[in-house]
Design a protein around this nucleic acid. Structure first.
Lengths: 159, 159
DNA sequence: TCTTGATATGTTATAATATAACCCTTTATC
DNA sequence: GATAAAGGGTTATATTATAACATATCAAGA
């Protein structure tokens, strides 16, 4: 999987690889990738973009799954807790994790024009946020880093 | 004003100074700091913490102001647009800007235990986010950076 | 000053996002 | 198989946010 940028690519393999990876992670963590959880991850992987909880829910509904809000939120919470998906605060949306490494602090690049989201990795402790936190005596446990702007595709289309 | 950290301080002067600064900024920008906008900023400055829109709204209501949701959202949007307040995505809440400088990209340090929020400044373009964006050909227009963790006060209280 | 366009406010209604709470089922373990 | 722990199904409701439209206020030129 690796980095997911804005470049279009054939990601038919992403879904399979993502599910396989999820299976490994869940096994290692001693938790269960149940059918609903697996299906939600699959939906996120297939769409390859940030999706709202109710959008995921609609999918499940159309497939005949039970589809009350808690169904989606529980599955999404699970995926986020185990690092298989991320929540994009700015969009109130969720996206499958596209970073292959272990524990990572993602930074999201969100295109205003097309809504595409790229995930990049970084070392939050090492940079300026870490420095700011140390200056305030603050212990960082998690970081939300989201950049809004325009992706290269949209700039090329409407410069 | 300057940096707002976790240290307690007498911020009676903060309110006055914040309002004066807001007046200058609005005059310079040719926009109006109307009574409602001013009052909402005053509330945020006085509380000195992140407040939800409906919490601000309750205040206005108790003071006899009209208090339908758009009243609060419009005032808060105005304050955010002009850099007088910030939206904390992670909390769906708003906080008065406590950074005296000009255009700045704030990073927020949010304490899980007590909910306090400190605002620090940084240079988003220079750091790792800038590097990640350049690597993806992404043009950054705004950055949300929020760190969750524990503030020094809470760690001292319950280590 | 009058008019006019732009901006702001008041209000109703509703959309979008998220969680509480309860009960039942499935799974893992002894 | 008994039992505890985790997950799922469902109802209801809480929380956050905006659309839409009528009225009021302001700024600036005719």
């Amino acid at each position: 999987m690796g980095e997911a940028g804005f470049a279009t690519h054939d990601h038919s393999g992403c879904i399979e690889a993502g599910l396989a990876r999820a299976g490994r992670i869940c096994t290692a963590a001693g938790v269960r990738l149940t059918p609903i959880r697996r299906r939600v991850l699959e939906i996120l992987l297939a769409e390859h973009r940030a999706m709202g909880a109710y959008e995921v829910l609609d999918r499940l509904a159309r497939e005949g799954h039970p589809a009350q809000p808690p169904v989606a939120y529980r599955a999404l919470d699970f995926l986020v807790r185990h690092g298989l998906a991320h929540r994009i605060e700015r969009l109130n949306a969720f996206i499958a994790c596209s970073h292959s490494g272990r524990d990572h602090a993602p930074v999201f690049l969100i295109c205003r024009a097309c809504g595409a989201v790229a995930e990049a990795g970084w070392q939050p402790g090492g940079g300026q946020i870490g420095a700011a936190a140390r200056a305030h005596g603050f212990r960082v446990e998690a970081v939300v880093a989201e950049a809004l702007g325009t992706c290269p595709n949209c700039r090329a289309a409407a410069p």
